Amino acid sequence: MKVLHLISGGDTGGAKTHIINLCSKLKDVVSLKIICFMYGQFYEEVKNAGIDIDVIQQSSRFDLSVVDKIAHIVEAEGYDIIHCHGARANFIGMFLKRKIKNKPFITTVHSDFDLDFQDVFYKRVVFSYLNKLALKRFDYFVSVGSALIDKIKGLGIREDRIFLLYNGFDFSKEIHYVQKDEFLSKFLDRKVFDSKIVIGNLSRLYKVKGLDVFIKAANIIAKKYPDVIFLIGGSGPQKEFLKQMINEYNLNDRVFLLGSIKNPYDFFNSIDINVISSYSETFPYSILEATALEKCCISSKVGSVPDLIEDGKNGFLFDVGDYKGLAQKIEILLQNKDLIKEFGQLLSKKARERFSAENMARMQFEIYKSILSKK
């Protein structure tokens, strides 16, 4: 079985992590190649993982000259399946499908496609429309988590063309990180974080990530607990808006924007409680990355997160947008600090058992077999 994966190559979120974790295990059971459309961090990480990858550069997002080049590779190298990831690859895949006959085209839906470009108006109008147009042309769909299945069906897709595949993490790999003091000292004076409970949120600074919810909850906690600080790691278009929020709440000595974080494990090793405050998610990798270090997690009740976090049993959930609910969950942990460690261990145990990269690759292989048998 030969599978060609297409992805933009500029990905920095869950899609990037998903395809690296998936292909690092999948390459042992299928012959695969990744083609992306730009050089960058994604390309370097894939190469370092020992995965076959080529770059066919586009001069712009709408440069369709790459279509003929990819079509030639598909025919010359005899790929059985073309598997796309993300809006740009879907757009290319739509045109590629016109040239490649009798081969199944699959796309993995990593997020809510109506919210992917929410922060930039013209992208929200143009790219969202083009992505949904492209999605309707695919033969089969892989939904990252159960919550997106109804969304995909809303495009007019039959349920028998949709497969469920949870994100998986490679818990067997060696994780490298610097110690807490070394990492935090790059951003903060030691007296700011010394002997403090550290609550963190690592995400891109986009509206959908609900960082306003995180800051509002921090405002409640900061008034009652002087020994707690809040860290936000990531970059994005909401940076100035979030800085303004922090100023308005007078939280400059309690809530800190750290900017882009190169190694997520440096961040997760330095916090005590991991928070996901998003308005929408599928199955965020930041939870799995944090569980690898046995970090306790509080998350908004989004996507398939409740399939991992059982509220009050191995972590906490709160309703989307409910900053008071988030603050209440944080307060429970601050009043019973033993739960922080206990929940972290329990969550890590469940993640390792059910959401490993090995399980993900095995399920993806079965999906490929099912699709080829239908062909």
Rank of each mutant, 00 (worst) to 15 (best):
I332L: 15
I276F: 09
K243N: 14
K369H: 07
I261Y: 12
K180V: 05
L148Q: 03
P306A: 06
E310R: 13
E281S: 08
E294G: 02
E182V: 12
R204F: 02
S278D: 04
L4V: 01
D52Y: 11
N274S: 15
K27V: 01
F37Q: 00
F113P: 00
V198F: 11
A218G: 14
H72Q: 12
Y279K: 13
G312K: 14
L258E: 08
C36G: 08
N314M: 06
L165E: 14
S24I: 01
F268P: 04
A351W: 04
K25E: 13
I287C: 09
K2W: 01
Y285D: 05
Y129M: 12
V213H: 09
G168H: 05
N359I: 09
N21G: 06
F105N: 04
K103F: 02
K295Y: 11
R362Q: 12
L339E: 07
F37V: 01
I92G: 12
K103R: 15
N131M: 09
A290S: 15
S299P: 09
F268W: 12
F365Y: 15
C84D: 06
C84K: 05
Q238I: 00
D253V: 01
D181K: 15
K313V: 11
F187P: 00
L32W: 00
K209H: 04
L155I: 03
D311A: 10
I34S: 00
K341H: 09
G344R: 04
I220P: 05
L317I: 05
I56N: 09
G234R: 07
D311T: 03
A89N: 10
E159H: 08
T108F: 09
I51K: 11
S286P: 05
M360N: 07
K136C: 08
A292Q: 04
I56K: 07
D170V: 01
K25L: 06
S203H: 04
A134R: 10
F230A: 04
S373L: 10
K223W: 01
A361D: 02
V320T: 14
N219K: 14
D116I: 08
T107Y: 10
E294Y: 08
F117S: 08
K153C: 13
S65D: 12
S195Y: 08
G145Q: 06
H85N: 10
F283C: 11
C297K: 00
V66M: 06
S280G: 07
G344M: 04
R254M: 06
N90G: 15
I53K: 07
Y122L: 13
E366D: 13
T17K: 15
L326I: 03
